[in-house]
Design a protein around this nucleic acid. Structure first.
Lengths: 171, 171
DNA sequence: CGCCACTTCTGCGAAATCCGCAAACTACGG
DNA sequence: CCGTAGTTTGCGGATTTCGCAGAAGTGGCG
């Protein structure tokens, strides 16, 4: 019935088990579906089904589950420059005491694109997306460096973005 | 005819001009379309049209143009952990001489998720996505630190991802 | 082994969406 | 005032999405 049939293998999308931390474990078919949607987030379910060897309805159900579980999301990503954000920077932050309150406060700032807690000479790495230099200065100097618990920061202003992919799982 | 009509304003999607660097300048309607697709990359054109005050066909053409121009792309983004990449790190890199050859070599590595040239105490910031510690060590130690021109590196292993958005333009 | 509960997959008809196209509209320059 | 170029609109026809009921596969248990 199907042109492609994945070699005999667990047929459960979650591979019959969850990993210890509760994150679902994906089987090869779901991975293949994700790959398809990484190439084109609007690709029709039927086309995906043909590529991975599943019916249209089955693909639709799996995609919906992946979205519900938060394993993936289908979104438009833009080039910040063309959308009017001309200044970006990475900020290394050192904190005294508990990291969580600081991370929470940073999370609430819309200019903060992402936050990671790291091991190394910085406690936090924070990416900031701003409209211009004034905006960036205001965010770093007035809003971040004044947060209680922030001991020091070091700025890395972006001069040029050389690579940006969203192709995890496509290897 | 339309419930919402954007107040009188330039009607050209590129706002009748391009910025100096050749990147297209977006008008308010295209921005609004992008916002819709950032919430849900599969939202139907008709629904977007209703939200921004345009016909279905017009939205479709604008979206196609934005994709063709490379202003945005609609893709599935996944949580690296659930897709099997358990070790990530940011790498600060210092280079002697021209940055471009090093950046090019890094670009070719599939484990390298993104690369920025920065001002500050690092010349390059590089994000690396690996399956486990061995994999990460191999990439950093054997493949990056041995690149000609790389003077030194500093690693920041990710302990926890606290925030990750794709909501540029949605402010 | 047989039965049951549970999940996933399939096949379908109905509804909604996508797609291509020709005509209408707008801004601009000659 | 007219022609050109770029957008938008309206509209069928093809395609896709959606919901659902039944079939099929899995694991537990007596």
């Amino acid at each position: 019935m199907h042109s492609v049939r994945v070699a005999s293998r667990s047929t459960d999308p979650r591979d019959s088990r969850e990993s210890k931390n509760g994150t679902p474990h994906l089987d090869a078919v779901s991975l293949a579906i994700i790959e398809q949607l990484q190439e084109d987030g609007r690709r029709p379910y039927a086309a995906i089904g043909k590529a991975v060897g599943l019916s249209e309805a089955a693909v639709r159900q799996r995609v919906q589950k992946l979205l519900d579980q938060g394993v993936m999301q289908i979104v438009a990503v833009t080039d910040p420059l063309t959308v009017g954000f001309r200044r970006q920077a990475m900020l290394g932050v050192n904190v005294e005491g508990d990291l969580d309150p600081v991370a929470d406060a940073l999370s609430a700032m819309q200019e903060v694109e992402y936050i990671v807690i790291t091991a190394g000479s910085f406690d936090l790495m924070v990416e900031i997306v701003c409209e211009d230099d004034d905006h960036l200065l205001e965010v770093i100097n007035k809003r971040i460096r004044t947060l209680p618990g922030v001991r020091s920061t070091e700025s890395f202003v972006y001069l040029k973005l050389r690579k940006q992919t969203y192709m995890w799982g496509t290897r």
